[in-house]
Design a protein around this nucleic acid. Structure first.
Length: 636
RNA sequence: GCCAGUGUAGCUCAAGGGGUAGAGCAUCCGCCUUGUAAGCGGAAGGUUGCCCGUUCGAGUCGGGCCACUGGCUCCA
């Protein structure tokens, strides 16, 4: 007899009946059942022993089941509307679900509406989802008959003689479940997008059409998700960037993936760079500059020409020598290290550089500022003795968190990638390095995930992911050991024993690249940058042309106080127009000067939030702005 | 690179199932002298992404390139 715990806490004992039967009339509140940590269908039979907990739709674990069932409804609708479509796979994912198809004719976004309509019908029909076990030979015959080549391929990999299928009405799909008991429970869903996807993620195989959708338990949750999606779209840095006049990318004239930083974007970049450089000096780093190109010999030695060539720009040939645009800064930093014999007393050496690199990325992957072909990494290489590794890694991580927090990020997840099967260097070094990384994240109290075997062949690493204001994850910081380059370049230091030793080298970038970082910051703040980063911090608006001299005087005073201010004295524009423009530009402080204020050395203060704070003495406003800057505050 | 979609003025978008491109904002010129998210009028602005083709005639149909968008893959 197994114990079955109902959602209301009631416990029933039973076996040999299905959960559905056991629940009787109460089944309508149930979605699935949790049996020894696994989710089952309600149509399964109660096991002989153990404990089972009935899940309702409001249980988080049931959401995945709901979405998986929604994927089946999608596939069902597609096979009704487009007979002959081949089915691939259709799982639940973080934000919903998808199903991959091979359509006989291309489908368009308009078709999504029809598919969704058909899905609604299937939900209306409230078809029971039944699990059927079909002998392997029979299953194969069935799939072959329907020409389901992808399903056949999946079948070949499934062990056992009895194969699990799910049936809803006339629709039958190879699937291990679990599913909701009936299609009627999937009430709140929406198809979102159409995209291409390779069969099994393999670019040499068929390109399928992926239909994305999402499903929620309640209408409110669905609504909220769609609003969130809308908000994310509104914050798109590719839209905000040109609107706020931060940057542009001009494919035809300049080239795809190459960024032009406009004055305002450049202003933000400069502020980031200044902060970055100052803090790096404080943290014991030494700033270096290195060239954009280097001889082929350098890249031969580093191994880039062997392993990275497809991502590098073609060589420039001059005086019969080949030069390559740098895809990374490391070889140059190593070059600096190697200009003399280094003593163990000099270590650690920390070289940092805002180094601009060029990588050839396939045109299809370019994406605004987030994926470009020329970008500036906030790079550094730490060269240290093995006995310094723990301390160095700890301080790198602490430093990284300090920098990221300064930009307003508060939520972090760390990913520790460990030794892959194919690796270089000796296992003891790997273990020591990996342990140092682990210790550092634990000391900082970060939640982390281990990605076993996912390190690069040359060393383990830690990546820090931040969450932005919309809870979207972005990978920024990376701290990576390198057991390859010190070897290839024969980097050494003289130890206390008077002999040569191999140093450890750590490669790290905190912000990733300035391009990507600006993109992320823009989306994080929706373009409303904190005062210390705002390209223009205050705009001074005259009520009429009579107040233009006073507005200019106010702006000059602000400038003298180190505040980035502008007086807008455009002729022929009303105050309403100017206020609107200032708000759209998301300028934090809007200072309005009319006859009333001009006489008393005051300004009427309005915030970009739309809040009208009324007249204030100018000195008070200056203190306020300077305070927000000093605290790097997001509060105005 | 691959699949699908898109490409019209600086921006956002219009132009029955071919008939010779139009509006708002921005720009410029006037008028208005303004009190917290768009005052009014006028002007100028286009080789409809590029190249071929079909046609009496192509923004519209066909082919090829290029770019972008959504993804796949990859990554800072």
């Amino acid at each position: 007899m197994a114990k079955v715990i109902l959602p209301n806490g009631e416990v029933r004992e039973a076996h040999r009946v299905s959960f559905l039967e056991l629940l009787g009339r109460e089944a309508k509140y149930a979605a699935a059942v949790l049996v020894n940590g696994k989710i089952w269908d309600l149509r399964e039979t109660v096991p002989a022993t153990g404990e089972a907990r009935i899940l309702t739709l409001s249980d988080p674990q049931a959401l995945e089941v709901l979405r998986h069932t929604a994927a089946h409804i999608l596939a069902h609708a597609v096979t009704r509307l487009f007979p002959g479509t081949k089915l691939a796979i259709g799982p639940a994912i973080a934000d919903g679900f998808y199903y991959d198809f091979r359509f006989e004719k291309p489908v368009s976004h308009e078709d999504l509406a029809h598919i969704e309509e058909e899905m609604r019908k299937i939900v209306e029909e409230d078809l029971p989802l039944e699990r059927v076990w079909i002998p392997r030979a029979e299953a194969e015959r069935l799939l072959r008959e329907r020409g389901e080549l992808y399903k056949l391929e999946l079948l070949a990999e499934i062990p056992g003689e009895e194969i699990s299928f799910y049936r809803q009405g006339e629709f039958l799909d190879l699937c291990r479940g679990p599913h909701l008991p009936s299609t009627g429970l999937v009430q709140h869903f929406k198809l979102l997008d159409l995209a291409g996807a390779y069969w099994r993620g393999d670019s040499t195989r068929d390109m399928l059409t992926r239909v994305y959708g999402t499903a929620f338990v309640t209408a409110e949750e669905l609504e909220q998700f769609l609003r969130w999606r809308e908000e994310a779209r509104r914050r798109d840095h590719r839209v905000l960037g040109p609107k706020l006049d931060l940057f542009s990318i001009q494919n035809e004239m300049v080239g795809a993936g190459l960024v032009l930083w406009h004055p305002k974007g450049a202003r933000i970049r400069r502020l980031i760079e200044d902060f970055w450089v100052t803090e790096h000096y404080k943290a014991g780093y030494q700033l270096v500059y290195t060239p954009h190109i280097g001889r082929s010999r350098l890249w031969q030695t580093s191994g880039h020409l062997d392993f990275y060539r497809e991502s590098m720009y073609s060589p420039i040939i001059i005086e019969e020598q080949e030069f390559f645009l740098k895809p990374m800064n490391c070889p140059f930093h190593i070059g600096i290290y190697k200009t003399k014999t280094r003593s163990y007393r000099e270590l650690p050496i920390r070289y940092c550089e805002l180094g601009t690199v060029y990588r050839f990325e396939r045109s299809g992957v370019l994406h605004g500022l987030l994926r470009v072909r020329g970008f500036t990494q906030d790079d550094a290489h730490i060269i240290c003795r093995p006995d310094q590794v723990e301390e160095e890694i700890k301080s790198v991580l602490r430093f990284a968190l300090f920098i990221l927090r300064s930009f307003g990020f508060t939520e972090f997840t760390a990913y520790l990638s460990t030794r892959p099967e194919k690796f270089i260097g000796n296992p003891e070094d790997w273990d020591r390095a990996t342990e140092a990384l682990r210790q550092a994240v634990e000391d900082e109290g970060l939640s982390y995930e281990v990605k076993a075997g996912e390190g690069a062949f040359y060393g383990p690493k830690i990546d820090l992911e931040v969450q932005d204001s919309l809870k979207r994850p972005w990978q920024l910081t990376t701290v990576q050991f390198d057991f390859n380059l010190p070897e290839r370049f024969d980097m050494t230091f003289i130890g206390p024993d008077g002999r040569e030793h191999r140093p450890y080298m750590v490669h790290r970038a905190l912000l990733g690249s300035l391009e990507r970082f600006l993109g992320i910051l823009t989306e994080h703040y929706g373009g409303a940058f904190p005062v210390w980063l705002a390209p223009i911090q205050a705009v001074v608006l005259p009520v009429s042309e009579k107040e233009i001299p006073y507005a200019e005087e106010v702006a000059a005073k602000l400038l003298a106080e180190g505040i980035r201010a502008e007086a807008w004295t455009k002729e022929g524009k009303t105050l309403r127009w100017l206020v609107r423009e200032a708000q759209l530009q998301k300028i934090p402080y809007i200072l309005i000067c009319g006859a009333r204020e001009a006489g008393e050395g005051k300004v009427a203060l309005r915030l970009r939030t739309g809040e009208d704070l009324g007249p204030h003495p100018l000195s008070e406003v200056i203190t306020r702005v300077q305070g927000a800057v000093a605290n790097r505050s997001t509060v105005l």
